[in-house]
Amino acid sequence: MDYFKNIFESAATVFEGLTITASHMFRKPITIQYPDRTLSPVIEMLPSRYRGFLEVDMKICTGCTLCMQACPIQCINIEIAKKTPSPQPSPSRGEGDGGGVPMRLITKFNIDIALCMFCGLCTEPCPTGAIRFSKRFENATEDINKLMFKFVEEGKPVAPYKKSSG
C-alpha cells in the first residue's frame, strides 16, 4: 500500500513545490544591486553607527595623542613638535613679541587604514570627538601606501585646538 501512497505523495509534493516556485516568478527580487543600481547611495543606507574608515577633524584635534595610546595595534602615528615661533617682525609692537612662548604643533597625523581593525578604541578617549568613524568603506587600491591616511600634510603643521583660546 505504501507503493501507491509514495506515488501520490511524490506527485502532490512536486505539484506543491511547482506552485511555490511559480508564485516566486511574481515576487520582487530582494537583491540590492551594489554599487551602481541602488535606490539611494549605499552610504545613506548604512546604519548611523557604521564603522567605516577613521576620519579626523583637524580643526578640533587637541593633539593629546590619547588615540595613539589607545590603539592596540599602533596604526595611528602622531608627532608633536614643540617649537618656538620665530620672532615675527611687527612694526607696532617692536620685535620679538611672544617669541619666547613655545608652541605645540601637530606635524604628523597618520592612520594606517590597511592595519586598522576598526575596533573603535581610539574614538572613545578623544576629548573633542575629533577622531571618529566615517561611513566610507570603498577604497580598493593597487598601492597599499594609498591606505596611509595623512590628516596633516607634510610641511604644513597644524596648531592644536585649545578651549581657552577659542
Binding site: 506552485t19 508564485s23 511574481f26 515576487r27
Partner: peptide, 14 residues
C-alpha cells in the same frame, strides 16, 4: 494554488 501561495506568504506580489 500559485496565487494562494502569493497571498499566504504575505510577500508582496510584483
Amino acid at each position: 494554488r500559485a496565487i494562494w501561495q502569493l497571498r499566504f506568504t504575505k510577500s508582496k506580489a510584483d
